[in-house]
Write a protein that binds this DNA or RNA. Structure first.
Lengths: 231, 231
DNA sequence: CGGATCGTTGACAGGTATCAATGCTGGTGG
DNA sequence: CCACCAGCATTGATACCTGTCAACGATCCG
């Protein structure tokens, strides 16, 4: 739960301007002067696996850009069970509901070590008023979330359990074209994501391993893309 | 497929200003003068069940507000099957992907008689530049789509078939607090929506009827909310 | 009437949840 | 150093649910 603060407050936004993943994130289109419009600090955090980025009950004053790592958006059910609603990867933005003054809709929890930027909603609103360049990226982000949700819906919620797991592995490896290995969820999270039991998730992963379709080491997985796509 | 045009092109936007459902739609916050910023015609259509609002291949030049009725967003699979991605009800906006210059992601097809407003993307962009009042509603719409998609994901894609059907019936009746009756999908669409076969959908609806949980007449259904919520 | 479309029902096979037990691994403390 | 424990993964047995294939009923309409 504790947030480890790396750079607590910047006097300027140089770090933002020179961000290594800026071409991927919300601020991709901003020009040099736009950054001078930002007044309050934009913080970046490093979180360990299991730590919370934000909770449903957190004051919805920030949106969060994922610089690296994997984050799950979780909704807890009254019976204590939970569902994973969505995953956030590099370049994704979490907590955009705060832009409408709404409370956060989910808990955002790091699945592995992640690097996250926290941007005050107030700054987004200011930029939106004073620079036209943010707006486009912003609607593009909304759009992304929705089309991602659609893919989710068509790939990860229908068909047999085996197909859903295969599609999830492909989804997780989508930014890993060299097949260096991508993060593998534990079986419980996988179940909460794909709407199946942990046992079923485990059986399928175990079967994939036996068939040589995937290789797992620690929490990293290398996949045989072709074989998975055949399923 | 044929579009029945009611008012082909307005000289002014009076009808828009005085729209009976304006408090529900995208233009809710616009003031009197804002409407003068609209130059090209905003058309409204009446479509019969089965007619197409827009197709994936349609030029993405318009977004569509649902004034009344029910519309399905459909994605066809290579094997000829299809999935229903989302439903649009009164006040919902379809085709927002056009705002990012992207092709439409789905086919939008009327499930019953519907009344739809077609708004040129160009006008949205103009309004966005020249009036601050549209922007808020626009982000609120994006937000709505996403939180709806989340509900979808948690209520309509997990759990037993019986639960999913029950949740769908509750979802369809959400704007029918008097229980006058809401539209009931045919069994095939229900299957395409809930990720089950037509036969399973039919069995469950038939069982609900026998147990007196729902009453069906033509394509209208009256539900026993309490009993459905228990499931 | 005959045909088309949609809804319903049955029988059966296969897939998945459930309950329960057993490995496996990393960390802790003696 | 090793024994032990906790948490996760795996596997098995069984019952239940759902898909599949097939047949039949209901309704509408030409």
């Amino acid at each position: 739960m504790k947030l480890e603060l790396i750079s607590s407050a910047w006097k300027n936004t140089d770090k933002c301007r020179n961000c290594g993943v800026r071409h991927l994130v919300l601020f991709a289109d901003l020009n040099y002067d736009d950054f001078n419009l930002i007044h309050s600090p934009i913080n970046d955090f490093e979180l360990d696996a299991g730590e919370t980025v934000y909770k449903e009950s957190s004051p919805p004053k920030y949106i969060y850009t994922i610089r690296s790592g994997l984050v799950k958006l979780v909704h807890y059910l009254p019976d204590g069970n939970y569902r994973i609603i969505r995953l956030l990867q590099q370049g994704d933005v979490g907590g955009m509901e705060a832009l409408n003054g709404k409370p956060y809709l989910h808990h955002a929890i790091a699945l592995e070590s992640v690097s996250v930027c926290r941007i005050p909603v107030m700054e987004i609103e200011r930029l939106n008023k004073e620079s036209p360049r943010l707006h486009k990226q912003l609607t593009a982000r909304w759009q992304n979330v929705i089309s991602d949700a659609d893919i989710w819906l068509t790939k990860l919620t229908v068909g047999s359990s085996t197909k859903r797991v295969a599609n999830l592995l492909l989804y997780l490896a989508k930014n890993d074209s060299n097949n260096n290995g991508s993060f593998l969820l534990n079986r419980e999270d996988m179940g909460a994501l794909l709407g199946m039991t942990t046992e079923t998730a485990s059986r399928i992963i175990a079967e994939f391993k036996r068939e040589g379709i995937i290789k797992v080491e620690h929490q990293q997985v290398c996949i045989n893309r072709k074989k998975l796509e055949q399923i």
